[in-house]
Design a protein around this nucleic acid. Structure first.
Length: 853
RNA sequence: GCCGGGAUGGCGGAAUCGGUAGACGCAGCGGACUCAAAAUCCGCCGCCGCAAGGUGUGAGGGUUCGAGUCCCUCUCCCGGCACCA
């Protein structure tokens, strides 16, 4: 046995063992309970970052723990391989995106393997491979047949110089990122998926996911944004035509208080009114300019201008003026609102500013209005009844809405309607490196779907985009084809699919890897994913799209489950310290944490930092996410080379609970390494034989180890891995104190098994070196023995008037009276009772006794 | 503004059902080994106090024999959504 802990040797040997034993290959076996553990697959950007290491270590701990518990475990890995970064890299390096992507995959796969993850590599997939994306295309065609996929025009960012469509992140300050040319808005046709058809189910089914974090569920619920209201119209006559101004409201009970209407600047009525009204046209332009993205939009002043157009109140027929308001959004509802200043805060502010009428129509406990300032109760719908509302007087919120909606319906001017914030999902991208949309354009037949037997439509992998337009347009071999309907020459669709499509069903493909259909009979065995792990940044889009995709597959009869992910863990980000300095020219210069020296005061508190290069002070910028620009990233590869994978894994698990952010600490990594060195040294010592004279046999070691084991098992159930790591450290501390205890070997065997999911390599090596067995993965997970936990005498905390004053030892079987007597008689109790009699004695069995005087 | 989550030593973080607050680790201090350094090992380590003791989990109040944990009010921080009609 090697005297010194040499991680590199140990880790290579362990990994070779797992490889030759095919230890992580998952085979369907209905006789055993299954556990499908999945971490979000990475985008192959070049190399792993710390966020990946954390994500996959969490998944691996769960995987190995369940394996040792006897579950049939699947932990696969793949690559989210289509996307824009590959095209950017291609332009820079003049290399096809495919080559860049495949090279990155090869390198990152090696990195993952060097971390010793228990991955079934036989199920590896990359979304850019035709055998994967053909099923994107196949399912898209099924959606087209079902009316779930459809075509409509969409507005895109157009770079007039490069003649190309830009993604939102490629537009910087309204200009193309490459050309600097002002970006134009263009309307082009695109394909949409009808996620709104599933809006109700996507919302309701959130309640069937108890294993999801509350905040993810609220984020999705907000995103779906269901509201109940009434859609109705104000009729009007313009240029001799009868027309209707449609609005949506959740407060139809206040309809009798309408004093004006407001429309968005982009509303057709606003556009029409602006013709021949230069002032209004200028105002509309100003509204469109407004910084729609900024957060200060909330404090933006309410502004408006009358259009001069009047509409009729649908119930009273009164004339109501239409205004253009900068607080009305074209993208929500009808782009127009009824305004009830008395019962809506924004309408109130607007009406006050422009001197418009305010009419109270809801009464709350007889309060009366003042126009001085907005009061909360003006908008109270729970406790109000209608007043000044004619036949609706006295009705409460729901009664009024029902009555008013019925009257509107009778006049054919509206009805109750449920409204969602959620929009259909536009999936067309005018990009090269993505899954081709399987359609053919024929001059005589129009748009024709590619027949199933001609799938997949294969994307050529040798294109090098140059930034000017879609390179597929310059590829006659891709572009030219034959119309499947009439056989005449036709042209292939060059748009590709949003990459969120690729990641919406990969988990199901892992469960039927290599199948000749989209999914096969193995999928029902593994699905749904038991534990999904990934970053909170995917809380809405990826997770919502995956849930939608699952429901579509179920509608098509491909799967029978409703939800793809039973439990979800969102791991926290990895943070590090930021150091910077302002240069003479005023620019900010960042320093990597290993380039600065911390300056401490006498108490050890960090007082500042200096540059190692020039000794001059640098500014401490707090902690933030690891990023290239701030130079505070830590390269996992360097860490593995210096300390080994086990140290990296241990530190990641120990430093913080999985859901919380993790602060990087070089000395914390050192501490993890120190622990593993001590563990190895203890293994060496125990193997060499320990002199029994060192310590007495009755050290209490066994009880201590089993207590810690109980704790560790409890924490594993809570996914609180930091305290599992801590329990392992405590076990080693105890073992080191009593190496000659007759139960030291048993203790070490427990420690190794508890620790092995976190640091599998060193535990694998020690397990074999100390002849516990051939493979620790095959060892049963340890359970605490009740027999090891019992004790003859127990120590109870002694309190007097609720304050801790010491402790009393009593026999384990002592009854209440005996405990009370022992407690009152104790020296500490007598001292603090000051001769007064005990008024009451509280005994908490096994824990404490409290004497009240 | 609304929704969700937080606030515990110099730092990361423990504390399962309301029962010894600060486990474990980092940093720091003292010591051993060494010519010396690194590594390693031993001890100390919330705050005030020589000590006895007091005090202490964002602030204030409450329930309780007993509150970091439960209830009420407030402050601040993080995340999400947001002129959503």
């Amino acid at each position: 046995m090697q005297e010194k802990y040499i991680p590199k040797d140990i880790e290579q040997a362990a990994q070779a063992h797992w490889q030759s034993a095919q230890a992580f290959r998952a085979v369907e076996d209905t006789a055993r309970p299954k556990y499908y553990c999945l971490s979000m697959f990475p985008y192959p950007s070049g190399k792993l970052h710390m966020g990946h290491v954390r994500n996959y270590t969490i998944g691996d701990v769960l995987t190995r723990h369940h394996k040792m518990r006897g579950f049939n475990v699947l932990q696969p890995m793949g690559w989210d391989a289509f996307g824009l970064p590959a095209e950017n890299a291609a332009m820079q390096n003049k290399v096809p995106p495919a080559k860049w992507t495949y090279d990155n995959i090869a390198y990152m796969k090696k990195q993952l393997q060097s971390l010793g993850f228990a991955i079934d590599w036989s199920r590896e997939l990359a979304t850019c491979r035709p055998e994967y994306y053909r099923w994107n295309q196949w399912l898209f065609l099924r959606m087209l047949e079902k009316g779930i996929a459809y075509k409509k025009t969409q507005v895109v960012n157009w770079d007039p110089v490069d003649q190309t469509v830009l993604a939102n992140e490629q537009v910087i300050d309204g200009r193309g990122w490459r050309t600097g040319a002002p970006v134009e808005k263009r309307e082009i046709p695109g394909y949409y998926l009808g996620i709104t058809q599933y809006a109700d189910e996507l919302l309701a089914a959130l309640d069937t996911l108890p294993g999801w974090p509350e905040r993810v569920k609220t984020m999705q619920a907000n995103w779906i944004g269901k509201s109940y209201g009434v859609r109705f119209a104000f009729p009007y006559e313009l240029e001799g035509r009868q027309e209707k101004l449609w609005v949506y409201t959740t407060r139809a009970d206040t309809i009798m208080g309408v004093t004006f209407c407001a429309v968005a600047a982009e509303h057709p009525l606003a556009t029409r009114a602006a013709q021949g009204n230069a002032k209004l046209a200028a105002f509309i332009e100003e509204c469109k300019q407004g910084s729609v993205m900024e957060a200060d939009i909330a404090t933006m002043e309410k502004k408006g201008m009358p259009t001069g157009i009047f509409v009729a109140h649908p119930l009273t027929g009164e004339r109501v003026e239409v205004w253009v308001g900068n607080y009305v959004l074209m993208g929500y509802g009808e782009g127009a609102v009824m305004a009830v200043p008395a019962h809506d805060e924004r309408d109130f502010a607007f009406a006050k500013k422009y001197g418009l009428a305010i009419e109270q129509v809801i009464d709350v406990t007889g309060k009366t209005y003042s126009l001085d300032a907005w009061q909360e109760w003006y908008a109270d719908k729970q406790n109000g009844v209608c007043i000044n509302s004619g036949k609706y007087d006295g009705l409460d919120y729901q009664q009024a809405i029902d009555a008013i909606a019925a009257d509107l319906k009778a006049k054919d001017l509206g009805d109750q309607q449920v409204q969602f914030r959620l929009r259909d999902w536009g999936i067309s991208r005018q990009r090269y490196w993505g899954c081709p949309i399987p359609l053919i354009h024929c001059d005589s037949c129009g748009t024709v779907p590619v027949p199933d037997d001609q799938l997949p439509v294969v994307l050529p992998e040798d294109c090098v985009p140059d930034g000017s337009g879609n390179p597929l347009l310059k590829r006659p071999d891709f572009l030219n084809c034959v119309c499947p309907k009439c056989g005449k020459p036709a042209r292939r669709e060059t748009d590709t699919m949003d990459t969120f499509v690729d990641s919406s069903w990969y988990y199901a493909r892992f469960a039927s890897a290599g199948a000749k259909t989209m999914v096969d009979s193995r999928a029902p065995y593994w699905m749904p994913v038991d534990q999904y792990i990934g970053g909170i940044e995917h809380a809405i889009l990826h997770l919502l799209y995956s849930r939608f995709w699952t429901k579509v597959m179920r509608t098509l009869g491909l799967v029978s489950y409703d939800e793809p992910f039973a439990d979800l863990l969102t791991q926290g980000m990895v943070l590090n310290h930021i150091f910077s300095r302002r240069t003479d020219k005023g620019a900010i210069e960042y320093f990597a944490p290993d380039e600065v020296e911390l300056v401490r005061d006498e108490g050890g508190h960090v007082a500042g930092a200096t540059s190692k290069a020039d000794g001059q002070p640098v500014d401490y910028g707090g902690i933030g996410t690891m990023s290239k620009s701030k130079r505070n990233g830590v390269d996992p590869q360097a860490l593995i080379e210096q300390y080994g994978a086990d140290t990296a894994r241990f530190f990641m698990m120990f430093a913080s609970p999985p859901e919380q952010t993790l602060e990087w600490s070089d000395s914390g990594v050192e501490g993890a390494y120190r622990f593993l060195k001590r563990l190895w040294a203890f293994g060496v010592a125990l193997k060499g034989g320990v002199s029994p004279t060192l310590t007495s046999a009755a050290s209490g070691l066994r009880r201590e180890i089993h207590l810690l084991l109980k704790q560790a098992n409890y924490d594993l159930g809570k996914l609180q891995f930091n305290t599992v790591a801590s329990a392992a450290m405590k076990m080693l501390n105890a073992l080191e104190k009593s190496p000659a205890d007759p139960h030291a070997r048993e203790g070490l065997s427990i420690l190794l098994r508890v620790l092995s999911p976190i640091t599998p390599h060193i535990c694998h090596a020690l397990w074999r070196e100390l002849d516990f067995g051939d493979d620790i993965l095959a060892a049963p997970w340890p359970e605490p023995l009740e027999a090891a936990l019992v004790q003859d005498e127990i120590e109870l905390v002694l309190q007097v008037n609720g304050k801790t004053r010491g402790s009393v030892r009593v026999p384990a079987g002592a009854d209440r009276a005996a405990i009370e007597a022992a407690a009152v008689a104790s020296e500490a109790a007598q001292k603090f009772m000051e001769g007064k009699p005990a008024k009451k004695v509280v005994v908490v069995p096994g824990r404490l006794v409290n004497i009240v005087v």
